[in-house]
Structures are given as C-alpha cells and as structure tokens.
C-alpha cells in the first residue's frame, strides 16, 4: 500500500471507517419476513396479555360513600365529587325531581373533564366536542369510543350514597 494518495481517490477516512451506508440500510426479504413474523408474535402476546388481564383481574370492592344531600342540588344542578378514590373525579346531575345520575367526569376519549349542559341535558367534553347522555352516559356524538363509567347510587333518606362503578 502506497503512503501517498492521489487526489482522485476516496478520502482516507472512508478506508478507515469502512461502513457503507447503503449496505447497512439494505434489508433482505428474508430479514423483513422474519421481522413481520416477530411483529405478529408481539400482537399475539398482546392479545394473551388482555386475555390474562380479563380472567385474573379481581373485581374491585367499592366503598359506600355519602356524596350529597338531596336538597343541596336543585333540578338541573350538578355537584362534583370524588369516588372511589380522591383522584377519580365524578359529576352528579339532578335531571328531575327524583332523577339523580352520576358519572365519571373523565371523557373516555382523552380524559378531559366533562361538564353538564342543562339546555340539552347532555354531558359535554370541551376538548373534542364529545357528547354523552346525562341519563345513561352513552355516547351521543363525537370521538369518545365508550360510554362514561356510571357511579351507582343509592338513596338513603335524604342522602345520596355512591356504592359502586359500572363500566361500559
């Protein structure tokens, strides 16, 4: 190997770091097929994980918690409360004299807080204009994929007691 290089030759660093980008980026059909099969395995494992979660998940025990007094909310009024943990914000709506409905306040789309629209009797999400029924929490319009989780209520005299959460 000569020590003197002519100007037309490749620079010295290309000889010393002989990594060829095009070769490095080249993916053979065989490699790509293996990658796809591994991706398929990943999807299958994901499905197995969902299966395991749905079979072994314990149904949570919900505490009973007094959330409001019947007289403190007028018809068409709302009260915000937390249930079952302080981090789970919920909304209680009085739709009629005896109609009390409570739902999780987290929109099922991207978890924005929903609010009550008295005129339409709907729960609205301001982020992406999702609308839920204030009667049963079902999706009426917009991007939310699922109904709002419903807080199960029990009336004990003049008090409203939350006794559980019904998802879906």
């Amino acid at each position: 190997m000569s020590l003197l290089r002519s100007p037309s030759e490749e620079p010295l660093w290309k000889d010393e770091f002989s990594v060829f980008t095009s070769d490095e980026r080249y993916v053979t059909r065989r490699q790509f097929t293996k990658f796809l099969t591994l991706a398929s395995l990943g999807m299958f494992v994901g499905n197995l994980w969902i299966l395991a979660r749905s079979y072994f998940a314990k149904s949570p025990a919900f505490p009973s918690s007094v959330i409001a007094d019947v007289n403190e909310i007028p018809v068409g009024g709302v009260k915000l409360f937390s249930y079952p943990t302080p981090a789970d914000r919920c909304i209680l709506v009085r739709t009629s004299e005896d109609g009390f409905n409570a739902f999780s306040q987290k929109c099922t789309h991207l978890s924005c807080a929903v609010y009550y629209e008295r005129e339409t009797n709907q729960l609205a999400c301001p982020c992406h204009h999702g609308y839920f029924s204030a009667k049963d929490g079902s999706v009426l319009q917009g991007p939310p994929p699922r109904p709002l989780p419903r807080i199960l209520l029990e009336r004990q005299g003049q008090e409203l007691v939350a006794i559980g959460v019904k998802v879906g």
Partner: peptide
C-alpha cells in the same frame, strides 16, 4: 373492548 368492560371478547380474539 376490554377497557369498555367486555371481557368476553378477549378469548376469541386471542
């Protein structure tokens, strides 16, 4: 479906 509380779809899907 799982997040919506319907566990019955998990087995056929898997």
């Amino acid at each position: 479906s799982f997040l919506a509380g319907h566990a019955e779809t998990a087995l056929p899907a898997a």
